[in-house]
Simulated assay, not measured.
Amino acid sequence: MKNSSVMIEDFEYVSSVNFIPWDKLSNKTILVTGATGLIGLNLIKSVIYASKKKELNVKVIALVRNMEKANNVFEDEIAYPGLSFVLGNIKNMPDISENIDFIVHGASVTSSKSFIDEPVETITTAINGTRNILELARVKNVASVVYLSSMEVYGHPDKGHIVTESEVAGFDTSNVRNCYPISKQICESMCSSYASQYEVPVKCIRLTQTFGPGVSFDDGRVFAEFMRSAINKKDIVLKTKGETERCYLYTADSVTAILTVLLNGKNKECYNAANPRTYCSILEMAEMVANDVSGGDISVKIELSDIEKLGYASTLYMMLDVNKLIGIGWNSYFSLKQAFERMINNIREEKENVIL
């Protein structure tokens, strides 16, 4: 996968922000799990770009489950001497002999359908994998670890309420779909426990739904459905009334948020990551894509379906308070419209490269 012009612009933006203390990464080694996932690949590519631009000599160890996929995803980074791959998974961690200074733990089951079809795999991957990463961090005496958590730990806040980091919710354990947010809560507690008992310098970042370049054309999430509709000039068909309201986050903004928490965050703390300016309902987002991104060429239709069978979470209202993250220097940049336009342009450029 060649880096598109959109991605290169994103890497340039990430490397140029003044709130990331890049000098802390000079001559250091970062381990990234979930390396070929959406956030992992954008993080690694951005760090390598910044390392070359700023002559930081950062080493990146990418934990991957499929070497062929890794070689494809990081086609433009393979020549970077500081990049190495470790084949394995977080549930059965391979030996890593190298020194490690920083860890970003992003490996996780992320498909809503998998939460319903494979809840045991969802839970065991999260819990066993996170313990393995924290054990590795303890043994390697790392300088900082960031665990990528989720806004889903907050459950179902009231409409209009702005959610702070202290408001984690309780869940009905008989609802199989809750395997995901409950496992995230357990992993956060494990991070806090390792910080307390073993002084592992770990922080958690609770990301809202994130998208941008790197999202595959056949991704099953709602923003990808809207993307395909815009590209194919087909009407957007909602399977719900689109009442869920939340903030979103562009991939480059998620990268700067993660690096900010990794390098500036306080140990044992959790940080919300979202762009408050993107807050809207799914229906409003669909209408924005139809009208503003597609120029009115498509429309929005509603065809109600059984959302439980689809694995969708029930209607929620998730306005995250990001003042804590802003307090350690971070700020978001990309609007929701920009996020869609850049994701779509990236897909189009990828298709052009395949044809060429």
Rank of each mutant, 00 (worst) to 15 (best):
S314P: 14
S15V: 08
D158K: 14
A313L: 07
S174A: 11
K266Q: 13
H156W: 09
G34S: 05
G265T: 02
S114P: 02
T110V: 15
E135D: 15
S294P: 01
A62L: 02
K159P: 01
T210D: 00
N275Y: 08
V139A: 09
A79S: 12
H161T: 09
V120Q: 07
A143F: 08
D10I: 07
I127F: 02
I258R: 04
S299Y: 03
T251F: 03
T208K: 07
I298R: 01
K59T: 03
I298G: 05
G295P: 01
F226N: 05
K301S: 08
I205Y: 08
L41Q: 13
I326E: 13
C280N: 15
I236G: 01
C247G: 14
C191Y: 07
D23R: 11
R65F: 03
M190L: 13
S254E: 11
E152S: 03
E121F: 15
Y333V: 08
S111V: 02
E68Y: 07
E68M: 09
Q197F: 13
L249Q: 14
N66F: 08
Y250P: 00
K113N: 14
Y194C: 02
C270G: 13
N323S: 12
L207C: 03
L136Q: 01
D101T: 12
I96F: 13
F223C: 06
R246C: 08
I20D: 09
V153A: 11
E269R: 05
M319S: 14
E152L: 01
E55L: 09
L263C: 00
M93Q: 06
D76I: 00
P21Q: 10
L25I: 12
E352T: 12
V202T: 09
S46E: 00
I282G: 04
I127A: 02
